[in-house]
Design a protein around this nucleic acid. Structure first.
Lengths: 223, 223
DNA sequence: ATCAGCCATAATGTATCCAATAACAACTGT
DNA sequence: ACAGTTGTTATTGGATACATTATGGCTGAT
């Protein structure tokens, strides 16, 4: 009846998934802040569906760590503590190099060219959202060649779960430090040489350095 | 009508969770083989509930990777390929040492005593199920001291997702090789010395060796 | 005899309705 | 005035009923 604006339920059997996809995007875009309450009925009529597929969507996103569900109480966008976030960065530091290792021999020259262009493009321009998008595209792009499934999914989830705090950090501090870009270019160079071990080292250091920077600004995680 | 034996629905608001816990246990116990179809209605009247909480439970287990859901089609116990399993072992090889690192300084002497006893107990006795349970208790027990959340959960999930293939491997081959036990004892010794780096190395090697053994028996993953 | 297409059946997806829980506010008693 | 309690309301949890989709068997034609 209402909210038929967005989409008509022409396709049966994927409502929960569609809602989950949309809600995920909304959370990652920052339209929902961590800790924000999610009301089932709101989503239900926003998507012109009943609360049932909404609940399924929430369960899916709970599995991805983006949403926290409490029985008989409600749903909230997951809120991370600094300790949680550091944990995730430590995990990333260990498994992203592994994922990169899978990819190094498989990345095409043109894919590497694209990464190069992204790294360069990222250096110029001062819009936070733009930087976040390019940075994400750069790193996840370097993982696109291999057909790993679980590993790729895990890394994507880690990026999603920390997305908001990356944004908060960038918005608050806009580091003048150019290390990020140097590391990106070094990484591209190592990829060109197909130097797996060095690529792993650079990436691990890149993530570790980011973790240190985050740790120095615990106020981002203040409730 | 039946199955009111187990629990009366006195508690409102946790049915999905209860079903998920039960089903998870059943899958890990081997009562459901990988690839087995899961019928919503079956579970529904087994647990004396409607299909609705069953679906929630399935979504939860899907998030944990134990179940695969296809829209309009059904649910199956997740089936892993050898490549998938190797991926998981490679991830384990990288992050379990990290989790162990968190724990080494926090494990109490009595906890280490218990690990020691488990390692010894595991050596004698030839029941596969018993070995699996003790091995799991040993390793996950060595991760119980730290209050890491995401990392601990991830490791538990990896253990759960590979549980069936560990069982299949042990049932099929019962390795006469005693390396497992030597590694366990070496690990306990390193923990006693609070030698973090060495403990990490031993654990990584332990997991890596297991991965190699698995790789030599692809027939376990034959459909 | 084999394969394509159709139909019947069984299982899943969704909406609506009702029950139960929890948060909140007003009230009463000390 | 304050705290404990009770009632009210908004929100979530679950069951039943119905729509929709996939699947397996059957029929018929080539």
């Amino acid at each position: 009846m209402r909210a038929m604006s967005t989409i008509q339920p022409s396709t049966h059997g994927g409502a929960g998934l569609r809602i989950a996809d949309d809600l995920r995007t909304a959370i990652l875009d920052g339209q929902y802040a961590p800790g924000a309450r999610i009301r089932q009925e709101n989503l239900a009529d926003r998507y012109g569906a009943s609360r049932l597929p909404v609940r399924e969507a929430l369960r899916m996103l709970e599995g991805e760590g983006l949403v926290r569900l409490v029985a008989n109480t409600g749903a909230w966008v997951t809120h991370l503590s600094l300790a949680d976030c550091e944990e995730m960065y430590q995990i990333r530091e260990r498994i992203e190099p592994l994922l990169l290792r899978y990819n190094v021999p498989l990345l095409s020259d043109s894919q590497i060219d694209r990464l190069d262009a992204l790294a360069t493009h990222m250096e110029h321009g001062d819009d936070v959202e733009h930087f976040l998008a390019l940075d994400r595209e750069f790193h996840l792009g370097s993982y696109e060649a291999a057909e790993t499934t679980l590993l790729t999914d895990t890394v994507h989830q880690l990026w999603n779960r920390t997305q908001h705090y990356r944004r908060a950090f960038m918005q608050a501090f806009r580091p003048s430090d150019r290390s990020v870009h140097h590391e990106h270019h070094l990484l591209v160079a190592a990829l060109r040489r197909r130097d797996v071990d060095e690529a792993e080292r650079i990436l691990a250091a890149h993530i570790r350095r980011t973790r240190f920077e985050l740790s120095r600004h615990p106020e981002i995680f203040a409730d």
